[in-house]
Amino acid sequence: MSDAADRLTEVRAKIADAATRAQRRADDICLIAVSKTHDAAAIRPLIAAGQRHFGENRVQEAAAKWPELRAETPDIVLHLIGQLQSNKAEEAVALFDSIHSVDRSSLVQALAKASEKAGKQPQLFVQVNIGDEDQKGGCAVADLPALLTEAKNAGLTIDGLMAIPPADIEPAPFFALLDELAERNSLPERSMGMSGDYETAVMLGATHARVGTALFGVRG
């Protein structure tokens, strides 16, 4: 418990410091604890320390562990941060409060159909392939306006953009580009920054930081 609480306190302090340097309010940044591959026993200490927003990569994994944890702590907010198959859209809409990986036309249509059927829509982010990497999900920067228009026409509300910069390259220019794209498209939310670079992301406009290792510790 104390280790989890200490790590959470440290990350929150670093977010607050970065926000202050950027003349922002720390309360405006949502810290998402990336709990993918961690079991309930590893997650509970962070919940006990006050963390409420958690991120998962896969619908199936989240469905296996979160119903029990949410029954214990009903105010948990669950974010899907990994790629989503269109045929899992209905399950994702039922399980998650926020989906950060909308990236193609077929998924927009599947989410619109699932949201209408469920009578509710999660908070949605369009994932942008900010570094134009073949192996990464996300829509191309050039395709973003068309995808946003399609989502709007399908009855979906897109709240923001999400990106994962290329590894081993200075992330700041990519964060700055995502911030600019969100601004250009009048989107208030920016999901960017992970354990190694969340402070930079906060200074460049992140509203949601997805932090795993810095909160859960390095695996032995």
Rank of each mutant, 00 (worst) to 15 (best):
A33Y: 01
A33V: 07
V34D: 04
V34F: 04
V34P: 06
S35F: 05
S35N: 02
S35Y: 06
K36F: 03
K36H: 02
T37E: 10
T37S: 13
H38M: 12
D39M: 03
A40Q: 13
A40I: 07
A41Q: 12
A41F: 01
A42F: 01
I43H: 03
R44S: 04
R44M: 10
P45Y: 08
P45E: 05
L46Q: 07
L46S: 07
I47A: 07
A48L: 09
A49C: 07
A49P: 06
G50N: 10
R52P: 07
H53G: 04
H53S: 15
H53T: 08
H53Q: 13
F54C: 08
G55F: 08
G55T: 12
E56M: 03
R58Y: 13
R58G: 01
V59N: 06
V59F: 06
V59R: 12
Q60L: 08
Q60Y: 00
Q60S: 12
E61S: 12
A62N: 02
A63Y: 11
A64S: 11
A64V: 02
A64I: 04
W66M: 06
P67N: 12
P67W: 13
P67K: 13
E68I: 09
E68Q: 15
R70N: 04
R70K: 14
A71L: 08
E72G: 00
T73W: 13
T73Q: 15
P74G: 13
I76K: 01
I76R: 00
V77A: 14
V77P: 00
L78D: 02
L78C: 07
L78P: 03
L78W: 10
L80Q: 11
L80K: 05
L80C: 07
Q83L: 09
L84F: 09
Q85S: 08
Q85L: 14
S86Q: 10
S86I: 07
N87C: 05
N87V: 11
N87G: 00
N87R: 15
K88R: 09
A89L: 09
E90P: 00
E91T: 12
E91V: 02
E91K: 15
A92Q: 06
A92M: 07
A92D: 03
V93M: 11
V93S: 05
A94P: 01
L95A: 03
L95P: 04
L95H: 05
F96V: 08
F96N: 06
F96I: 05
D97W: 06
D97G: 15
D97E: 14
S98A: 06
S98W: 15
S98L: 14
I99S: 08
H100F: 00
S101M: 08
S101Y: 11
S101P: 11
S101L: 06
S101K: 12
V102N: 04
V102G: 04
D103N: 08
R104I: 03
S105P: 06
S105Y: 06
L107N: 10
V108D: 00
V108M: 13
A110G: 11
L111M: 13
A112L: 09
A112I: 13
A112Q: 08
A112Y: 02
A112W: 04
A112D: 11
K113A: 14
A114R: 02
A114G: 02
A114P: 03
S115T: 10
S115M: 00
E116S: 15
E116A: 15
K117Y: 00
K117V: 13
K117N: 14
K117R: 15
K117W: 00
G119W: 03
